[in-house]
Design a protein around this nucleic acid. Structure first.
Length: 634
RNA sequence: GGGUCCGUAGCGCAGUAUGGAUAGCGCGUCGGCCUUCGGAGCCGAAGGUCCCGGGUUCAAAUCCCGGCGGACCCGCCA
């Protein structure tokens, strides 16, 4: 069920305030856009209109002007607005909670899980997210991507867009060829598939780097350069030591096998060339590897309840279909494609200039379309993939770390060069900052990362410890600690603005107190407990809900559709996390200060029960958007 | 070296896009509340040159300029 956005109680209130202001202004011969603010304290009412800008524009004193407006509004007929006050240049609107409480609570209860749904938009959006290279497990950094992508999708869906979630499998990348090369030397799996391949990949990469550096050092005479290379070699040697300690047998086996080859890098490059040409042996080994890792991804993603509508194989969409080659040819026909240093490049600055584009940068380096060995590069293939996506959607959102800002701009520039600027305008790179380990950058190539699986295990373990204090049934303990542990991790990653780097520490991610997933889940459980004890429902007297505790909850509840709208239009998943925390805090205040079941007056008791029900529904709705499950007890 | 983003209490974060009322929240610290719907909670206290310096404005954490500090990026990785 969907109701029109304008029928939500909050919008009815806002509309009334707006028309009151407009009427008063028009009597003064003024017509301006009305912008409201939320007052910092309930004593200034529920919604404010600052008159400063308009007063200035028409040469009036703000304080006097606000008084004039208020005196006019006082003479108008009002419905949900109770009264209006002028304070220091603000026109403050006070809502009539006697009416508002009833319509807010009743609309929430009647809409249930549909409360917050916005008008259907008839716009299809593909959200591509996670898209971890199939060479190592999902680590806590890529988990941020997955969770942002999923929550963003949920928000847009709630806001009425038609959403498809896509995972792009980058099976044509150099990394996959490297991992497959290492895996071909071992050809077995120990433990969880993606974790084991992650190890093979890091070890292979490390061994090859060391081999290469040693050979390079032999051939260099410049002392400065030798020093540089030795420093690099030292770093990789220490990584080798770290890695070898984790699994000596496999590591040594890999060294033996890799050192049999004169030039492993060339072997890898050849494997990739053969894969791009879809040659059978290459397809067999690379696909085998990808399937292994992806099955590991699916297991992990299942744990956190993230699902995809489509798993897009890069090889099929961009490479074997001939789409990438086609695009390279077309780009070469434009004035922007050229040969430089033996390969094909795209002059991005020229495109920037020609189409008068900004992108917040002064210049963009040229995009290399092909490697010298003839194989294609990620961003080039991404052009083909982007066009493919636009055959299936009106808008595309790519959730990709901010590191890839330049390539994502280059991708758009390539679209302009192909006269597909209209697509570029509907392509959004949703960039987010990385998750760092204290002091070091997480790196798949170096095997330096904390996997999402281990974070979840630890979170569940800690939750189990807490849960065991209150719950005795073993099966329940396990079930509930999983819901809570996972909720804690998801909330921790979604509640911080995507444009802030996160330094991973266990305490931060596994917070069970206020401002955390479990805090909100606990509020939900409190609401459930009250409702479970209600025997029969009788007539509610909403007019008796007149404490600040109750009014603030009602206002907050009524804002939910607006929060959905803001989060969707501004692409800000974190404001939903903040909303959930605010609502829970208000509910806790109410819970600790006012009796519900023990309220003496029957009408009041029933009104409070309804209020608790409404809180339960909204918490359930907001947590569902955040992808966090709700336990009945904890 | 150049570009982008960030800098708010001991620590972790909102608030900045679109300038407005006493700059909010959590952790930690100190002091209270379990005979009241479940204390993962609530009440109270201490803690701020909103990185620094200029400028615009009736009004700046928010906008502009210049510093300082950090993260990320700057052609054949993604």
């Amino acid at each position: 069920m969907r109701i029109m956005m304008k029928n939500y109680p909050y919008y009815i209130f806002e509309e009334e305030c707006k028309s009151l202001i407009e009427k008063a202004l028009s009597e003064e011969g003024i017509k301006e856009e009305i912008k409201f603010e939320f007052p910092p304290s309930p004593k200034y009412g529920d919604l404010s209109f600052p008159v400063f800008n308009i007063a200035k524009k028409y040469g009036k004193n703000p304080e006097d002007f606000s008084k004039i407006i208020v005196s006019k509004i006082n003479s108008y007929e009002k419905n949900i607005v109770e009264r209006v006050e002028a304070i220091g240049g603000y026109v403050n609107f006070f809502i009539d909670y006697k009416k508002y409480s009833k319509i807010v609570i009743e609309s929430i209860i009647s809409l249930g899980k549909d409360y917050g749904n916005l008008d259907k938009k008839d716009i299809k959006i593909i959200v591509e997210h996670t898209s971890v290279n199939p060479v190592h497990p999902i680590h806590i950094g890529s988990a941020r991507n997955a969770i942002i992508g999923d929550v963003l999708s949920n928000i847009l869906e709630k806001a009425g867009y038609e959403i498809k979630r896509h995972f792009y499998i980058d099976d044509v990348g150099l990394q996959v060829a490297q991992a497959a090369y290492g895996y071909s030397k071992i050809r077995k799996i120990e433990g969880k598939k993606d974790h084991f391949i992650g190890y093979i990949y890091a070890a292979t990469n490390c061994i090859i780097n060391i081999k290469k550096l040693k050979e390079e050092i032999k051939g260099i005479s410049n002392e400065e350069k030798i020093k540089e290379k030795i420093k690099e070699l030292d770093e990789w040697t220490s990584i080798a030591n770290e890695l070898r300690l984790k699994n000596e047998k496999i590591f040594d086996e890999l060294i033996n096998e890799i050192y049999k080859s004169k030039d492993p890098e060339k072997d890898i490059s050849e494997l990739l060339i053969r894969y791009e040409k879809k040659e059978e042996d290459a397809v067999k080994i690379i696909r085998e590897l990808c399937e292994l890792v992806i099955s590991g991804f699916r297991e992990t993603l299942d744990r956190i309840g993230i699902k995809f509508d489509s798993w897009d194989w890069e090889s099929e969409i961009t490479c074997w279909s001939g789409a990438t080659e086609d695009i390279i040819n077309k780009l070469m026909e434009t004035e922007f494609g050229k040969i430089d240093r033996g390969t094909i490049i795209l002059d991005c600055n020229k495109i920037l200039e020609k189409f008068k584009l900004k992108f917040g940068v002064k210049e963009i380096p040229p995009l290399v379309l092909k490697r010298s060995d003839g194989t294609t590069l990620y961003t080039t293939r991404d052009i083909a993939y982007t066009i493919w996506k636009f055959q299936r959607a009106d808008k595309v959102i790519n959730v990709i770390s901010i590191e890839q800002r330049i390539p994502q701009i280059q991708l758009k520039l390539a679209l302009y060069a192909l006269n597909l600027g209209n697509l570029a305008e509907r392509l959004i790179h949703f960039g987010y900052e990385l998750v760092h380990l204290p002091g070091v950058k997480m790196s798949g190539r170096r095997g330096r990362y904390i996997t999402l699986d281990e974070v979840l295990d630890e979170a569940i373990r800690r939750a189990y410890y807490e849960v065991s204090k209150r719950i005795s049934n073993e099966e329940e303990r396990r079930k509930i600690s999983e819901i809570i542990g996972i909720g804690a991790v998801k909330y921790a990653l979604i509640s911080i603005s995507p444009n802030k780097p996160i330094v991973f520490t266990w305490e931060r991610v596994l917070d069970f107190e206020k401002n955390s997933g479990p805090f909100i889940q606990y509020g939900y459980v409190r609401a459930c407990n009250i409702i479970a004890k209600v025997e029969k429902e009788e007539e509610a007297n909403y007019e008796s809900l007149n404490s600040d505790y109750e009014k603030q909850i009602i206002m907050k509840l009524s804002l939910f559709p607006k929060i959905i709208n803001d989060a969707a239009e501004e692409l800000r998943p974190e404001i939903l996390a903040e909303y959930a925390n605010d609502l829970t805090s208000l509910f806790n205040l109410f819970y600790d200060n006012l009796p519900v079941l023990k309220a003496e007056d029957k009408g009041l008791r029933n009104a409070r029960i309804k209020l608790v029900k409404a809180v339960k529904i909204v918490l359930e709705n907001v947590l569902s958007i955040l992808g966090i499950n709700t336990p009945e007890k904890m």
